[in-house]
């Protein structure tokens, strides 16, 4: 058996399609508290789409044209929605102890996603190409100097910051989101706290 066969069999075993896009989920998922994750994901998709348009036409376009301002504003409000729903998602998962039942790694990927999102938003602030971004970069460089990272992450270097914001960090986010969603699907949605006595792992296998 060659390695492509082994990989295919592993994928089919670990990620069956009926688990990736299920059309039936436990009744307790029918609650608004479970919407926050998918709304964060929807905000991320809007960020990527509006970001691609912004990258294609560039700063001169988004600063002077009406359509550019509109797409820039969509990118801006999508960020607000992204962090708003991400924090609600974080609180919801925290108060329902969503790391129960072997879901610890999913909690960890969520925390890393939150931190990488903050870094992505920060490099986005620096990529606005206006006086705000210049001010933030000049003020923020001292913090990064104090951390000792400015040797390889210089926030006054626009090319580096822009490259991180539009290529590297979105790819890292997309990869981590993929892992995050895979872990949700592979373990199933966590049961409510009061229902956990019925051992949620078995409950999901019975779906």
């Amino acid at each position: 058996m060659n390695w492509t066969t082994r990989v295919r069999q592993w994928l089919l075993r670990e990620i069956p399609m009926e688990d990736l896009l299920p059309d039936e989920l436990p009744a307790y998922v029918h609650s608004y508290v479970y919407y926050f994750g998918v709304l964060t994901l929807a905000s991320f998709l809007m960020l990527v789409l509006s970001g691609i348009i912004l990258v294609i036409f560039g700063p001169q376009w988004w600063h002077v044209s009406a359509v550019g301002l509109f797409v820039n504003s969509i990118h801006f409000w999508s960020v607000q929605a992204f962090f708003f729903f991400m924090v609600l998602h974080l609180w919801a998962q925290f108060f329902m102890s969503a790391w129960r039942g072997g879901r610890g790694l999913n909690w960890v990927t969520g925390v890393v996603l939150f931190l990488v999102s903050i870094l992505t938003a920060f490099t986005g602030y620096l990529s606005q190409q206006n006086f705000d971004s210049q001010w933030i970069a000049l003020q923020g460089k001292d913090a990064f100097n104090a951390l000792g990272v400015s040797g390889f992450f210089n926030i006054l270097n626009f090319g580096q910051v822009y490259g991180l914001h539009i290529v590297v960090l979105p790819l890292v986010l997309a990869l981590l989101i993929g892992v995050h969603l895979y872990l949700v699907r592979s373990k199933g949605v966590v049961t409510p706290v009061l229902d956990s006595a019925s051992t949620d792992r078995e409950a999901h296998h019975d779906e």
Partner: peptide, 23 residues
Amino acid sequence: IVLLMVIVFVLALVLPHPSHGHI
């Protein structure tokens, strides 16, 4: 998701990016 997209589009129209126009 649809409602979120509508809200973001409306907000982008009525409350544009606050730093627009500095350059």
